[in-house]
């Protein structure tokens, strides 16, 4: 088994070798390490992308809008870098869409890292494959095959407002159960058990 440290270093060097700047290569080392740590096929997808990277032309998007569409497939790395760099503006858009992106798995770690920056989850849909990105702590997905995804026709990135997964009623029910650990205080205890003075005007 390759260690994550080996993956990070080798990806960084390989990324520089195919033509990315050192600063981007550093990001890719961390990204592929992240995907592999979450059990997603990062290295496999990167390797496949780099095989065609020099032969084909890719759209290198710089300014990301709400809807991004191109006849030439987007480079997932440049799209990802700019998504990460522009995240505080993009967050305001509620939803961002891309049409036609190569090797979209490589886009995912940039989004995962973005969730940590903005403190919000992101729901990602890549042609029906769903990913919930949780503050860069985990990725929950229905895509478990480990396959290479060469192209995404439609990508939807939705920023999820911070809210609970349960209702107020469910919370109350559980809270009442938690009250079973509390002790009913006598009048004397109410006065003395907290340790504070009887008046706060001193």
């Amino acid at each position: 088994m390759k260690s994550f440290s080996e993956i990070d270093t080798t990806v960084k060097r390989a990324s520089k070798s195919v033509g990315f700047d050192w600063g981007i290569a550093e990001e890719l080392g961390k990204n592929i390490r992240l995907l592999e740590m979450f059990g997603l096929p990062g290295l496999k997808n990167l390797n496949a992308y780099f095989k065609i990277y020099r032969q084909k032309q890719f759209q290198k998007i710089s300014l990301i809008s709400k809807i991004n569409s191109s006849n030439i497939a987007y480079c997932p790395i440049i799209a990802g870098i700019n998504f990460l760099d522009q995240i505080t503006n993009l967050e305001k858009m509620d939803e961002v869409g891309f049409e036609n992106m190569s090797y979209p798995m490589l886009f995912i770690p940039f989004l995962s890292r973005s969730t940590e920056i903005i403190g919000k989850r992101i729901f990602l849909n890549i042609d029906g494959k769903e990913f919930l990105l949780n503050f860069n702590q985990s990725i929950y997905s229905n895509f478990l095959s480990g396959d290479i995804i060469e192209l995404a026709k439609i990508i939807k990135v939705k920023f999820i407002e911070n809210k609970n997964t349960f209702s107020e009623n469910e919370w109350q029910e559980l809270y009442e159960l938690s009250e079973g650990t509390f002790v009913e205080e006598s009048e004397q205890l109410k006065k003395s058990a907290a340790g504070a003075g009887l008046t706060d005007n001193d």
Binding site: D21, W22, G23, I24, E26, E27, L63, I81, N82, D85
Partner: peptide
């Protein structure tokens, strides 16, 4: 902003970091 500057200056990303 640095985010906007980086759009055209990723060759210096490593030292900006």
């Amino acid at each position: 902003t640095i985010g906007k500057f980086l759009m055209n200056n990723n060759d210096l990303r490593h030292v900006i970091r």
